[in-house]
């Protein structure tokens, strides 16, 4: 039986990696992947808690997140694709349409 804390530490490490990648990398695809990693870090934490508490709630949430993440990935990639078509770039510094 692996203790709960191991999972949580792994989850934190994954999350931190994702966050750092998000800030360090410049192209949208990589940033997108970084977000996915953070998602999965959260999923891992959920699962670990669910297992240790012996409740199914955490697992249900994880399923939910996975489904939503799949949909979100599709939409997100489509948007990135469209941005590339319009702007010929996917560097996040070049995109500031929402500037006030």
């Amino acid at each position: 039986m692996i203790p709960l804390n191991y999972f949580l530490v792994l989850s934190i490490i994954l999350f931190a990696l994702g966050a750092i990648a998000f800030f360090v990398k410049r192209d949208l695809i990589t940033q997108f992947m970084a977000i996915e990693i953070m998602f999965n870090a959260a999923n891992l934490a959920f699962l670990a808690f669910a297992k240790s508490a012996g409740s199914l709630d955490g697992q249900i949430i994880v399923f939910f997140v996975i489904t939503v993440a799949a949909a979100e990935a599709a939409v997100g990639l489509a948007i990135i694709l469209l941005i590339f078509r319009q702007k010929k770039t996917i560097k996040s510094e070049d995109i500031k349409l929402m500037k006030g």
Partner: peptide
């Protein structure tokens, strides 16, 4: 509105940083 909009840089990283 103009004044507040200076916080809207348009860069996604800035938003993420503030968020964090």
């Amino acid at each position: 509105g103009k004044v507040l909009s200076y916080f809207q840089t348009g860069y996604i990283k800035d938003y993420a940083l503030i968020f964090l």
